[in-house]
Design a protein around this nucleic acid. Structure first.
Lengths: 207, 207
DNA sequence: TAAAGTTTGTGATAATATTAACATATATTT
DNA sequence: AAATATATGTTAATATTATCACAAACTTTA
């Protein structure tokens, strides 16, 4: 398979999400034109994107919603269950632990980690809080794939490094720093950065 | 000022964040080369980006950290304080309310809204929870700029629409849907989408 | 079942974005 | 104070991304 462009890859979850919605509404068929209208993008781009993975559609008909959705499940790799731990049992960390959406897509949160001795041993919706000193060991023993970092900025890089050494394959970083690692996939959620783009766009319009 | 490309705009908060870090470490001067090494990007791109806003640097010297940071503050518009409400006092909504980082950059969370009568009247770190039926009124009376949506997908579009009509200028959307509105800036945080890009990248490498 | 209408897949074109290259200006060294 | 090193701002070249346009294939209608 050809290398998938970054821009295309980033749109795939959106397609998947929309198709799931259509399926839940009992819609069985959809055209790139309809998708484009719903997602505010050109039909051409959608066809172009999907074509990186082969022709799923049919001329004069469009796409079969369920079939296309299933293809996307496979392309995205969400048919493979992934084990995830959350490091940092603060506001964001516990919110993620309580958030049930990830489970639906095959992500299993197998542990929460913190350095606060008062929290260790507690449970959040069935997820146990462990001592952060046991993180490496836990990752190794349980085959953890993804480490979500919801720790203060100054600890993020170090924990990321420990996680990688212990065998984690991906870092989902919520700390407001740029985690630098080689050989590990890093995906950032920078909430403040995101908010700032709104400020920029608002002030540009003199609002 | 020329129209700033989307890609450039998205990098500005990252520059700002990094410069703040340098300043806090007492570093007063930095070159595009050094910035590039820290941020894993080319020096050329950094210079190119900054030049959309004018020449802040000096040949042979580089950039003055504090000065450049202050310029970015102004460019990003975070020198203008913004009022924000959070709609949805669930996991994510309350985590955002408790998260102190936004205040530091001039964002004021002035209210939380929910439909659950048991929550209404309660406070979360000093932020009162109001009845969602009073949202439009509150936005109008208090001049709310930004509405953060942490509600279930099916309510998001409707609340966004109400918020716009009441005078909100921007939607910070955490619901897993694509909010469609004209004349309002929408910024999405799609956590599950983000997680899925990790799955994609991991499965592509047969991990 | 023939004609008309859809809609895909795809190659060509246009628009954005990134990187390279370098003249010019300043800082640092000797 | 001259020589060397550094580093910007900016234009040009390259690479990536998005859109256009249309033949080919299928569906729907009459």
């Amino acid at each position: 398979m050809d290398k998938i462009p970054e821009a295309v890859m980033r749109r795939l979850p959106r397609y998947y999400r929309h198709l799931t919605g259509l399926e839940n509404n009992g819609i069985t068929r959809v055209s790139s034109k309809q998708l484009g209208e719903s997602l505010i993008m050109t039909a051409s781009q959608i066809r172009h994107d999907l074509n990186f993975f082969g022709g799923f559609g049919q001329q004069g008909y469009g796409y079969n919603v369920s079939e296309l959705k299933e293809k996307l499940v496979h392309i995205l790799g969400i048919d493979i269950s992934r084990k995830l731990v959350i490091v940092g049992a603060g506001n964001i960390g516990t919110a993620l632990a309580r958030h049930r959406d990830f489970e639906k897509e095959g992500y299993k949160i197998v542990g929460l980690f913190d350095s606060n001795k008062d929290l260790i041993g507690q449970e959040i919706t069935g997820i146990k809080i462990y001592d952060i000193d046991d993180l490496a060991d836990f990752i190794e023993k349980n085959g953890v794939d993804i480490v979500a970092l919801t720790v203060p900025a100054k600890y993020a890089q170090k924990i990321a490094h420990i996680s990688q050494k212990a065998g984690a394959k991906a870092i989902w970083n919520f700390a407001p720093v740029d985690v630098l690692l080689d050989g590990v996939e890093v995906e950032n959620i920078h909430l403040t950065d995101s908010l700032m783009t709104l400020s920029f766009r608002l002030s540009g319009k003199q609002n």
